[in-house]
Simulated assay, not measured.
Amino acid sequence: MSDAQPPTQQQHPEQPQQPIGQPSPPQWIPVPPPNPHAQSGTGRAGKGLGIASMALGLVALLTAIIATAYFAPAAFFGGFVGLVAVGLGIFALVKKQRPAGTWITGLVAGGIAMLLGLVVGTLGIGTLALQAFSASPGSAAEDQEGPGSGSESGEAEGQSSLIEWPANMATGGIIFGERLEPVASAPLEPGEAPVASEVDRSNGVLDIRVYVDYRCPYCGIFEQTNGPVLSELVDSGAATLELVPLTFLDKASQGSYYSSRASAALTCVVDGQPESAWAAHSTLLAPEVQPTEGGSGHTNEELFQILDRSSGGLNSSVEDCIATERFVPFAQALNNWVFSSSVPNAADPGLRVTATPFVVVNGIPFDGNPNDAAAFTGFLSEIAGY
């Protein structure tokens, strides 16, 4: 017999045998990590932040630039939108969003808008506040200084800062007494305020104040209806009448400032030829003299000719005064002072002129119709007590 052994299967301990009939276990196959640049140019999550930042930044910058042209407070809105744009741009920067140009544009435009908004908005509010203070009819400067201060709007270009005051109007009005003659008074010093007239209501003499604008049609109606009664009362000594001419209807004169020139013409007569003042006042309210609605009114030369005829002749000083518009600045300043002050000697200390004609008898305003003669006569009788 041979000593040879039958062949046997070689064992490999490093490779364990898989039992027959059982499935092979899953094998691990290594997978490479994702390429961070595989989607380059498409942005990351939140990519809309950059676009929103750019859009808001441009809108904010445009708003601020437009507001700059007018120094408008709306620039603050542009600055606020710019702040939002900067905030979105910073978020986009943190997220490293692409394309970077969007949030860079938002940051730059938003930052500029914020700066413009702060500067222009602040200047705009300051300008509006200054204008409001300057235009206020009740400012402390006007109340203290009066018509002669030269601070009122509408003054002729190049005039002195202090306004010349006429004679016979120390109270701010023309006081007519017996024989319809103005009460004499010296001109006030420039810068002085009018002094309210003294009234004595215990003697039975009515004190009447009438505010008129010589362009006002209702003032003309009141004059035609009640002028004869007033002139009779004053002429007889039963009443005094203080006439205050206003100029607020210049705006209806197509740039000719007729109300101011007519009031100044009357002031010229009061100053230089006072005995003709009542005739001048009545003439300026006559239907054939008052300007038609929408018309520019008479020229200075025509005003002089009209008043010259109605008074029986005016002197050369009055003619020169009207031609040179000497008292136009005073008339305009007096108008502003009246509307910023209470009515003197009124029963109600807070009474103010609200329209023309504005008639006050013994401190009580007449609220009837200008063309109702019976109502006005009854009002006078009730005040007088008869």
Rank of each mutant, 00 (worst) to 15 (best):
M1P: 14
A4C: 02
P6E: 04
P13S: 13
Q15K: 14
Q18H: 15
G21R: 10
S24G: 12
W28V: 13
I29T: 14
I29N: 09
V31G: 06
P32W: 01
P33T: 13
P34H: 08
P36L: 02
L49V: 04
I51F: 10
I51V: 14
A52M: 06
L56K: 04
L62E: 01
L62T: 14
T63D: 07
A67P: 05
T68Y: 07
A72F: 01
A75S: 14
F76S: 04
F77L: 10
F80Y: 04
L83P: 02
A85C: 07
G87D: 01
L88F: 14
G89R: 00
K96T: 15
A100M: 07
W103L: 00
T105F: 00
G106Y: 10
G106K: 04
L107I: 00
G111N: 02
I112R: 00
L118Y: 12
L118W: 09
G124H: 08
A129G: 11
A132R: 15
E145T: 15
P147W: 10
G148W: 08
E157M: 05
S161I: 05
A170L: 00
A170Q: 09
I174W: 02
F176R: 03
E178N: 04
P182Y: 02
S185T: 14
A193N: 15
A196H: 06
A196R: 07
V205A: 06
V205D: 05
L206N: 15
R209D: 07
D213T: 07
T225K: 00
D235N: 14
L241G: 08
E242L: 02
V244R: 10
V244E: 04
G255K: 03
S260Q: 10
R261S: 08
A265W: 00
D271T: 15
Q273G: 05
E275P: 11
E275C: 02
S276V: 09
T283S: 10
E288D: 15
V289F: 04
P291M: 00
P291V: 03
G295P: 07
S296M: 09
N300L: 06
E301W: 00
I306D: 12
D308M: 09
R309C: 01
R309Y: 07
S311M: 00
N315R: 06
N336Q: 14
S340I: 06
S340M: 02
S342H: 13
A346P: 11
L351Y: 14
L351M: 13
V359M: 02
G363N: 09
F366K: 02
D367F: 01
D367A: 01
D367Y: 04
A373S: 15
A375I: 01
F376E: 03
T377P: 05
T377V: 13
S381A: 13
A384Q: 14
Y386A: 05
